[in-house]
Design a protein around this nucleic acid. Sequence first.
DNA 1: CCGATTTTGTTAACCCGTTCACAAGCTCGT
DNA 2: ACGAGCTTGTGAACGGGTTAACAAAATCGG
Lengths: 231, 231
Amino acid sequence: MTLLRTSRPARADRGIPDATVARLPVYLGALAELAADGRSTCSSGELAEAAGVNPAKLRKDLSYLGSYGTRGVGYDVAVLRHHIGRELGQTQTWDVVIVGAGHLGSALSAYHGFDSRGINVAAVLDTDPARIGTDLAGVEVRPFADLEAVVEEFGIAIAVVATPGEAAQGVADALVAAGVTSILNFAPAVLQVPETVTVRKVDLSIELQVLAYHEQRRASGHEAADEEVAG
Amino acid sequence: MTLLRTSRPARADRGIPDATVARLPVYLGALAELAADGRSTCSSGELAEAAGVNPAKLRKDLSYLGSYGTRGVGYDVAVLRHHIGRELGQTQTWDVVIVGAGHLGSALSAYHGFDSRGINVAAVLDTDPARIGTDLAGVEVRPFADLEAVVEEFGIAIAVVATPGEAAQGVADALVAAGVTSILNFAPAVLQVPETVTVRKVDLSIELQVLAYHEQRRASGHEAADEEVAG
DNA sequence: CCGATTTTGTTAACCCGTTCACAAGCTCGT
DNA sequence: ACGAGCTTGTGAACGGGTTAACAAAATCGG
């Protein structure tokens, strides 16, 4: 994994564990599939398989939200979708701003499936004059200088950084100054932000390097692993 | 976090913990920055700050590779880069194939920074006739049917799935059949693969949903959290 | 109405990862 | 040559997350 959290440790409160929160969207997707198949109820076993997790883990995760299942029966698909969606804040639509209209920014703007998840790309910003004014999946690219105005206009709390690594910290500083409190960072850089701001990082290159490590091991002397696996 | 591993539990052996492996590329990037700044040595504290982690954690991570530091002095930047790079398999270049030449596939093909990390996009495949034959950052899009030939030709072990969710499982099956053993999955789908294959999943929508959850909590009654934070 | 069967919710053990704290070891000044 | 001062490497405590196992609760057949 390549997700660095730079936020408060949280805990205390009645908060849901981070690991669980990260899986809730997966459950939501699996439930959407089941609903599309016409299923109205499902057991923890079925849902766990669709989500690719252990059934016990699934039940424990869901138990943090409350008791929305029926013993001996299972979960009502629609009810569970509602409760997970509500917990994730999908009762409202979150407007986000994407900074950087390069290849990745374009890909993100065009990404379908945001809409159904309560996410709306409200604006795309860039500093390159050649990009400003162009249309990205129905959203016009605006100058980066418009940041504060855009944040104000849409009441934006979540931003996506899709710039080159060198520009990322400067952009992050501007985002924080404009009042953004959650940042999804695709740039290959470690962002320094106040504790009050949540940062998640996705680095495409890092993901591939991790896979290369596994290949590396596979290729050379992992013989012991095959014999020694305990459980 | 949104990284699902669908591989063997591993352990035993002299393997490096997964959490550490995921951070090694980050350290590598931080070391590259230090080197670019002309630094020839650095302490664990400096490197930890550049990488955004706890110094103790950094030292423990590095200790899995061996003792490449000098007490009282620190680490030699060049030496450490060499050893981390070697551990990650960067002594060779890994040819990867990208399946799906849509927005995301295009973005990945154009992503700079792969080259310097031992990753090379050898081929891009798609089923859409309109895309086949087009040029993506110097690589020609080939028909998906060429998969086996491409894997054979380049000796490919690592593949990237950048297709719509519906197509992902079929693509994964074909990849496995062709001999690919590591898959980076960007499609919003849970891939079922044999235990011998490593899968990492990155879902852009999920990342944003996790951030929305944090915003949701921030907005409503997290008062207790501010008072109760312990560490 | 009751026992058999199913499936949830939860407790407790386990395992992995993080962090602290300190001994081991290196350098430098004297 | 030796002590003062750093910085690494690691043993041990701690905390969170995963998993197994079971009790509680619902349905269904007779």
